[in-house]
Nucleic acid binder design. Structure first.
Length: 586
RNA sequence: GCGUUUGUAGCUCAACCGGAUAGAGCACCGGCCUUCUAAGCCGGGGGUUGCAGGUUCGAUUCCUGCCAAGCGCACCA
């Protein structure tokens, strides 16, 4: 309908151009809006106000001319000028009825479209370091990222979901060493656990599994380990120097193969946990992309080579630098340290080179907001590699600030003191967790009160939407108990009986669904879908309280059943898209 | 200090590339269950959209300054 009105207005404008009321050069972008107030009709257009200046006339006068030039159309009940120069359109309710037929026919596919035209889009999200279980901050990225990916898929993009696994670097060595030390404890060695190691309980579990699997194979005496190791912080030393020395000691005492085995044990243990966790949360990936692989298969070297060829690398003080400041970054960045090791950024350059080479039309990176300063350098790298940086979209997710009642919950992976996503899911359930996370704009700060979410789950808004769905299911059960059939055809023939205000509002809401999906997808804003579902549920609850559906008159009854079945279908489509269950009873 | 994001009802948040009287939920007050699930509905109070300017038919939205908060400013990842 929107397109229809847009076409009509364009025709009118062309007419005015021919008649000389408008300059031929102007080609306004026509904006058709849903009206907020029913008094303003169904759709409104502001084109007269936009063009008034260039036409050298007042908005209302121009609006009248446009109005007069709009071809008549059976679908248009009337159009009128209002306010400062809006043209308001009133749509024939028969066109609204069509959507019911469409919903009942298309069923699960209703709302989906092909706007994406099969363009290849990659969405990379979560990508948390595999040094511990996901916490509630990652949960927001997971819920948001998967919702964005699923929305894009729903409107016709070919979507690939990817998790970048940072399985290289110092943090992973600290993890491996942490596992080894806990393992030594299990072997009976008296270990003083470093202050900078990973202290979470999960490290112990992995260490025990290692002990179960391999016995004392990796055991070394604590004396040989601690010999000449610089003191830890609590003993007046430096915690970083201490842990780095222990890492080196682990490597030398265990040898390459055994160290690798311990390392893998830690990595795989955590990675499997993360995969399982996300899967249970309704988040599945097509690709888990390993940073180590980039280093091993020469991609990092190749990427640096390409930057060098393009003239963007130089040496200084023993390190190799990428001249990103020439491409908008605030300063140059090191890509190879003076000790010969490439930096994390070098891996990321290679990673984005890979993304480009894999032929995506669009690359979407979803990062925690604390990484926002990282964007210019990645853009610079892509540009230096000769790519169009428009292909890259970085979406930022603000961390949720956790509260327990009034008290702010501090979180630190290192100390093991954090609320995991798994714990949250267990306490509030997957549905509530997803709904909560997705309810808010992702780039907005968010307060997540655990006490509220866990102790008063009945007040959770997710139930409001699910309840509307369950109520419709219940009506249909009542119908079956009374041995009455829902005659869809008879309903369709009697839709004109749906004259109540509640019914008209529901119809309008239903016609909006495909538009909401499209907007939510293209703007990467799944919260719009949540808000829509709440409105639809609200419209339904009001209707439910005001009118009886299972009335004597079969004509009216079937028409109303058509309507609520359509509502049921759209609620289910929306909830399913967000990976939230649609319960038939509550 | 520089960069960046954000300031909307008591609290948590919306507001469609700038649109008409800024909306929901929670909390508060008052109504509605002999009728399809009251996890619901109906009504009410509650706002100088941080402050001050600017741009224009029109600004919560765009620009400038100020105030406040978060984040970033590594040869860490």
């Amino acid at each position: 309908m929107k397109q229809k009105i847009e076409a009509l207005i364009l025709q009118a404008i062309d007419t005015l151009k021919i008649e000389g009321d408008l300059a031929r050069g102007v080609s306004p972008s026509i904006v058709i809006e849903r009206t907020r107030d029913p008094l303003h009709g169904d759709f409104a257009c502001n084109v007269a106000m936009v063009l008034a200046k260039s036409a050298n006339t007042s908005p209302r006068l121009l609006a009248e001319k446009i109005l007069a030039a709009i071809p008549s159309d059976v679908l248009l009940l009337k159009a009128e000028i209002a306010g400062p120069g809006f043209i308001n359109f009133f749509v024939d309710s028969r066109t609204q009825f069509r959507v019911l037929q469409q919903i009942l026919t298309e069923a699960d596919a209703f709302g989906c479209s092909q706007i994406g035209a099969d363009k290849k889009v990659q969405v990379e999200f979560v990508s948390a370091n595999p040094t511990g279980p996901l916490h509630v901050g990652h949960g927001r990225g997971a819920a948001y990222g998967s919702a964005v990916a699923d929305l894009l898929a729903a409107v016709g993009f070919s979507v690939e979901r990817e998790y970048y696994v940072n399985d290289a670097g110092r943090q992973m060595d600290i993890l491996a060493t942490s596992v080894w030390l806990r393992y030594l404890e299990a072997c009976g060695e008296a270990v003083v656990f470093p202050s900078n190691a990973y202290r979470g309980e999960y490290v112990r579990e992995i260490a025990h599994a290692l002990y179960e699997l391999s016995g004392t194979l990796y055991q070394r005496s604590i004396n040989s380990i601690m010999q000449a190791i610089p003191a830890d912080e609590p003993q007046g030393g430096d915690k970083d120097i201490h842990i780095d020395a222990l890492i080196e000691r682990a490597k030398s005492l265990l040898g390459v193969a055994q160290y690798q085995a311990v390392f893998e044990m830690g990595l795989n243990g955590i990675l499997e946990d993360i995969k399982q966790d996300l899967h249970e949360f309704g988040v599945d990936y097509q690709q888990w992309f390993s940073e180590r692989q980039l280093m091993d298969d020469g991609s990092v070297q190749q990427a640096l080579q390409r930057l060098d060829t393009a003239g963007f690398l130089y040496k200084q003080e023993g390190a190799t630098w990428f001249a990103s400041s020439r491409l908008g970054d605030e300063k140059d960045r090191v890509v190879v340290r003076d000790n010969g090791q490439s930096t994390y950024f070098a891996s990321d350059i290679a990673y984005h080179m890979q993304k480009l080479d894999r032929g995506f039309d669009q690359i979407i990176d979803i990062w925690g907001a604390d990484h926002h300063g990282y964007i210019p350098r990645v853009r610079a790298a892509m540009q230096a590699l000769g790519a169009n940086t428009d292909k890259l979209t970085v979406l930022l997710v603000q961390f949720a600030v956790l509260y327990r009642g009034e008290e702010r919950v501090q979180m630190s992976t290192r100390s093991g003191d954090f609320v995991t996503l798994r714990e949250l899911r267990a306490e509030v359930g997957n549905d509530a967790a997803r709904f909560f996370y997705t309810m808010r704009r992702s780039d907005q700060h968010m307060d997540f009160d655990l006490q509220l979410a866990t102790s008063k789950t009945n007040e959770n808004p997710v139930f409001y939407v699910q309840y509307a769905y369950a109520r419709i299911c219940s009506v249909l059960r009542q119908l079956a108990e009374k041995n009455i059939q829902h005659d869809i055809e008879q309903g369709t023939e009697n839709l004109q009986l749906l004259t109540e205000l509640n019914e008209r509002e529901l119809l309008t809401a239903l016609t909006r669904y495909p538009e909401v999906l499209e907007r939510a997808a293209l703007q990467y804003e799944p919260h719009q879908l949540i808000h829509y579902l709440r409105e639809l549920a609200n419209n339904f609850h009001s209707y439910y309280n005001a009118h009886q559906f299972l009335v004597e008159s079969a004509d009216l009854r079937n028409a109303r059943l058509n309507l609520i079945c359509a509502v049921q279908q759209v609620l289910r489509n929306g909830l399913t898209l967000l990976k939230i269950k649609s319960p038939e009873t509550m």
